[in-house]
Nucleic acid binder design. Structure first.
Length: 197
DNA sequence: AGCGGGATTTTCT
DNA sequence: GAAAATCCCGCTT
């Protein structure tokens, strides 16, 4: 029987769309919150926009480690973003999780984001998790989870069947200044939690 | 809806 | 010392 996470060993460009529709099960406070991954970006070692491009450093070591682990980095002086490491061990590649759709625990996530769910309009509810740093704040993912194994609590990856190609939009990545033309951003078409349609 | 600036600190040159 | 895989707010169309 093959490991259900086998596809994580592939190239980031292949893994990123495959992760759409998969779920993260996170222990947040005293409950388990499940979220559907709706937007991802691939970062490869041969990619000038990737943290791993110039080789392994203390910060990026986890990207070069085994797949199916979390690479959490700190940026802009105040934000955490999380990636799922993929590819062979020794290769620096990962998939940035840019947006998720909460399936339960919305009030808890809002509280972590310093928002009051009862005061949010339907239009505003998506802002709880529609960005890479927002979802980390909502799910309480920070530096302590850098290198975390996604087979284990408190953050587990739950695989789901691959989506149909027609359900996935492929386009350029956001917020980078190098390799801006590479179409390595993927999102679920029409999903309201996607950061930018 | 889109643009511009400020926040804030780690990381690497 | 500069840049950074971001977010939020305020201002202008």
């Amino acid at each position: 029987m093959s490991d259900k996470f086998d596809f994580m060993v592939g190239r980031a460009e292949q893994v990123a769309p495959r992760l759409l529709g998969c779920e993260l099960a996170c222990t947040v406070g005293n409950q388990i919150v499940r979220c559907k991954i709706v937007e991802t970006e691939a970062y490869d070692q041969s990619d000038a926009a990737s943290h791993s491009y110039k080789g392994e450093t203390p910060r990026t070591g986890v990207m070069f480690g085994p797949p199916s682990h979390l690479y959490v980095y700190f940026t802009y002086g105040m934000h955490y973003c999380c990636n799922i490491v993929c590819g062979e061990e020794g290769v620096g590649s990962a998939v940035l999780i840019r947006a998720v759709e909460p399936l339960n625990g919305l009030a808890t996530l809002a509280t972590n984001r310093k928002l009051d769910l009862s005061r949010l309009t339907d239009r505003q509810v998506v802002t709880i998790t529609n960005g890479p740093a927002k979802l980390c704040q909502a799910l309480a993912i920070d530096k302590r989870l850098n290198g975390h194994n996604l087979h284990e609590s408190p953050v587990r990856l739950v695989l789901k069947p691959a989506l149909n190609e027609q359900e996935i939009v492929r386009t350029t990545r956001i917020g980078i200044t190098k390799a801006m033309d590479m179409p390595w951003r993927f999102y679920i078409a029409g999903n309201p939690f996607v950061s930018k349609q």
